[in-house]
Amino acid sequence: MQDQASLVAVLNSTWFASGLEPGIQTRLAELSRTFTAEPGQELFREGDESEVLGIVIKGRVALRIHVPERGDFTILTVEPGDVYLWSALVPPYRATSTAVAIEALEAITFEGPALRAALREDAALAQALYPRVLVAVARRLNATRVQLLDLFAAEQVRTW
């Protein structure tokens, strides 16, 4: 377990939590713990209850969706600075994909229920954190749209 000052420093190194007010960062550090995973380790499965919200500090997490008969597809990798399991803040608090650490992972995690309780009770914390969560989710939504366009697919030659 790291001390709070270094946790604050680590939070500040991520785009997700950088630049938040010192008081907010201290509060977040109080709620957080460090987490590590080995390459290949599964962090959670699609449909599981979202137990934590995580911020990747080092390493890479693949988010995968299973398609029956076709297998697992990685639809996104979560890179340092970005969050995983934002679903811990959004009902019904269920993971929307399966996550696997594909490189040795260092992360900071927040227990879902405790974080939700803190956000309900602490308006300043909620005011600071929710916009960041929204940016993270919106960024993913935009990326998904671009991926849907399948821009690099071979040109479909139409007759007219």
């Binding site: 390459p39 890479r60 990685t74 991926q147």
Partner: peptide
């Protein structure tokens, strides 16, 4: 697929 350990995303 699962055998790719690089980045996925735009």
């Amino acid at each position: 697929g699962p055998d790719w350990s690089g980045r996925v995303g735009i």
